[in-house]
Simulated assay, not measured.
Amino acid sequence: MGLHDTFKALSDPLRRQILMILREGERSAGDIASELNITPAALSYHLNLLKKADLLMEYKQKNYIYYQLNTTLFDELVMWLKQFGGEESEK
């Protein structure tokens, strides 16, 4: 996926909330839905968009699917954004 998909995924406040929850560590879909007070179907829609943008990774453990941030993509995004900032003064 390209930057367009990443920024599109980040444009939604609910998806940003999901990322903030996952910043604290991995969570199951049920935990995320409960915390945000949304239906599993609505959460699934948002999780799929975040996964397609490579912002999330998932893994299965027994009957649960756990989600976590793809920190590699965030590192790449920060590096890309830094090219637009001014240079810091060196002391």
Rank of each mutant, 00 (worst) to 15 (best):
51 K>Q: 05
35 E>P: 02
41 A>K: 12
58 E>R: 02
9 A>I: 10
56 L>I: 12
25 G>S: 09
35 E>I: 11
63 N>M: 05
38 I>C: 13
57 M>Y: 10
66 Y>H: 07
62 K>P: 01
7 F>N: 07
84 F>E: 11
5 D>S: 08
84 F>L: 11
36 L>N: 04
10 L>W: 12
60 K>F: 14
32 I>Y: 01
83 Q>T: 05
31 D>F: 11
68 Q>M: 13
6 T>A: 13
12 D>N: 14
62 K>N: 13
32 I>D: 04
13 P>V: 04
35 E>A: 10
9 A>E: 06
16 R>F: 10
7 F>W: 07
41 A>M: 06
8 K>Q: 04
4 H>M: 02
19 L>Q: 05
84 F>G: 12
77 L>K: 04
56 L>W: 02
3 L>M: 07
27 R>K: 14
13 P>L: 04
26 E>I: 00
43 L>I: 00
22 L>H: 12
6 T>E: 09
64 Y>R: 06
32 I>Q: 02
66 Y>I: 09
44 S>A: 11
39 T>V: 01
91 K>L: 14
40 P>D: 09
74 F>K: 03
28 S>F: 10
76 E>Q: 07
85 G>A: 12
58 E>F: 01
20 M>W: 11
61 Q>F: 07
19 L>W: 07
25 G>T: 00
55 L>Q: 03
9 A>W: 14
58 E>D: 08
16 R>G: 09
15 R>E: 12
27 R>E: 14
26 E>T: 02
38 I>H: 10
77 L>E: 06
60 K>G: 01
80 W>N: 08
5 D>P: 02
9 A>V: 11
62 K>F: 03
32 I>C: 04
48 N>H: 11
70 N>P: 08
82 K>N: 15
40 P>T: 14
82 K>L: 14
69 L>P: 13
16 R>H: 08
30 G>I: 07
80 W>K: 08
50 L>V: 01
90 E>C: 14
47 L>D: 07
48 N>W: 06
75 D>E: 10
4 H>K: 11
15 R>K: 07
35 E>G: 05
56 L>Q: 02
54 D>W: 02
58 E>P: 02
56 L>Y: 04
91 K>W: 13
86 G>F: 09
48 N>R: 06
55 L>C: 04
80 W>D: 10
49 L>E: 09
45 Y>G: 12
25 G>M: 04
70 N>S: 15
56 L>E: 05
29 A>Y: 13
37 N>D: 14
28 S>L: 12
69 L>F: 14
2 G>Y: 14
72 T>I: 06
47 L>K: 01
53 A>D: 01
67 Y>H: 11
84 F>N: 07
81 L>K: 03
30 G>M: 11
16 R>V: 10
24 E>G: 05
78 V>C: 08
16 R>N: 07
64 Y>T: 13
90 E>N: 15
50 L>I: 01
5 D>Q: 09
89 S>L: 15
28 S>N: 08
68 Q>P: 07
8 K>I: 06
50 L>W: 02
6 T>Q: 11
20 M>A: 14
70 N>H: 14
8 K>Y: 13
89 S>Y: 15
91 K>F: 15
58 E>M: 02
73 L>R: 12
37 N>Q: 15
10 L>V: 00
55 L>R: 00
7 F>M: 08
66 Y>A: 03
29 A>R: 11
62 K>T: 09
22 L>T: 00
53 A>L: 00
62 K>E: 10
63 N>S: 13
59 Y>I: 01
51 K>E: 09
64 Y>M: 06
55 L>A: 04
9 A>Q: 04
73 L>M: 08
